[in-house]
Write a protein that binds this DNA or RNA. Structure first.
Lengths: 174, 174
DNA sequence: CGCCGTGAGTTGCAATGTCAACTCATTTCG
DNA sequence: CGAAATGAGTTGACATTGCAACTCACGGCG
C-alpha cells in the first residue's frame, strides 16, 4: 500500500517547516499532546478496571484518596483530585452500592458526609494500586529518572499556570 | 539536555517525598497529573472556542492539519493528530455543515475523501491559531525553552509507549 | 467475470467529565 | 425568634471521545 508519493512528501515537509514558524505544529503543540495522552490513558484505565474489577477510572481515583485519608469528605476529594463534585458524588454512591466504601453522616452536621473504604474496598485498592504503578512504569519506560523528575516538576508548574491559561484572552479582531 | 529547572525539579521531589504519605503521591503520580492538566485545559478550550467561534476542540485541531495540508484525507488526519477516526469523521461533517471545510471524493476512489478549508474556514483558523499559541505560551510560562523541548520529546515518547501501557497486565492474584 | 479481502469512513454505544438547577441542614443576622 | 444566606451534596442534561461493529468501494485472485 503506497502511502505518499514523492511529490506529496516534499510538499508536506515544506509546509511543515513554514507552519512550525508562523502557525501550529501539532506534533509539538503541547496542549494537544497532553490531551491525547490523558484521554488514551484514562480510556485504557477504564476499560481495564471495568472489565476486571467492575470499577471505573473515576471510582478508582476516589478510592485512592479515601485509602490515604480515612473518613474523608466528598468535598475534599473534589479539591484534591480536581474533579467535579457531581462526578465524585456519583462515583461514591456507585462504590457504596458495590460495598467498597462506607458513607456516613458527620456527627456535627448531618449534611456533611464522610467516606472510608470497607475491608473489600481496601483489598481492591491494594490490587489496583499495583496495576496503576505498573501502568505508570510502562508509560515512563525509556525515560531517564532525572528526566522523569523534570517532567513531574514541569507538569506541576503547568498546573499552577492553568488559571492564567484559562483567563481572559483578547480576541484578535482581524 | 537538562538545564535550568533541574534544581527546582529536585527540590520539588524532595517536597513531594515528605508529603507523599498524606497526599497519595498525587503530586508525583504522572498519570494523574496528565489527566488533571488535560481536563482543565480541554474544558477551558472548549468553553472558549465554542462560546466565541462555535467550534469544538477537535474540530479546531482538524482545521490545524487541514490548513497545513490542503486536500488532506481524513485517514491522514487521524494518523497525524493521533485521534480516533470516528471523532475525526464527526468533526469534519460538523465543520462541513458550518461551511468551514469542503469535502470532496478522491478522483481515484470515490470512498476516499479529501478535505480543504473554505475561505471562511481559513480565516477562522488564522484567528484560532493566535489564541491557541497564546494559550500554549501561558501554559509553558516559566519553563526554559530547552526544558520545553525535552517535555515535548517526553510526551511524544509516552505516546509511543501507550500501546504497551494499555496492553495486557498480569492480574495480581492476592 | 465474479467473489472475497482489505481498508476508509460511518454509526452506535458506553464512559468520562462539566455545568447548572435543585434540596435542605446549618449559620448568620435583622 | 425567624428569614435569608451559605454551602454540601444530588440530580439531570449534555458535550467529549474512544472502541467496536458496520457499510461498501476497490483491488486481487480464482
Amino acid at each position: 500500500m503506497r502511502k505518499s508519493t514523492q511529490k506529496s512528501a516534499s510538499r508536506r515537509s515544506a509546509e511543515a517547516r513554514t507552519r512550525s514558524r508562523a502557525n501550529l505544529n501539532l506534533q509539538r503543540y503541547v496542549p494537544a499532546l497532553l490531551v491525547f495522552l490523558a484521554n488514551r490513558f484514562t480510556t485504557g484505565t477504564s476499560a481495564l478496571y471495568l472489565k476486571n474489577f467492575g470499577v471505573g477510572a473515576i471510582e478508582w481515583r476516589c478510592m485512592g484518596l479515601i485509602a490515604a485519608e480515612r473518613w474523608v469528605s466528598p468535598n475534599r476529594i473534589c479539591q484534591v483530585i480536581g474533579m467535579d463534585k457531581a462526578a465524585v458524588s456519583r462515583s461514591l454512591r456507585s462504590l457504596e452500592k458495590k460495598k467498597l466504601v462506607e458513607i456516613r453522616s458527620s456527627r456535627q452536621r448531618s449534611r456533611f458526609l464522610e467516606v472510608a473504604l470497607t475491608e473489600s474496598g481496601s483489598q481492591l485498592h491494594g490490587r489496583l494500586s499495583k496495576i496503576a504503578l505498573e501502568r505508570e512504569r510502562r508509560l515512563l519506560a525509556g525515560i531517564a529518572p532525572g528526566d522523569a523528575d523534570l517532567l513531574i516538576s514541569m507538569l506541576n508548574h503547568m498546573l499552577t499556570n492553568m488559571p492564567k491559561v484559562n483567563g481572559h484572552i483578547d480576541m484578535p479582531a482581524e
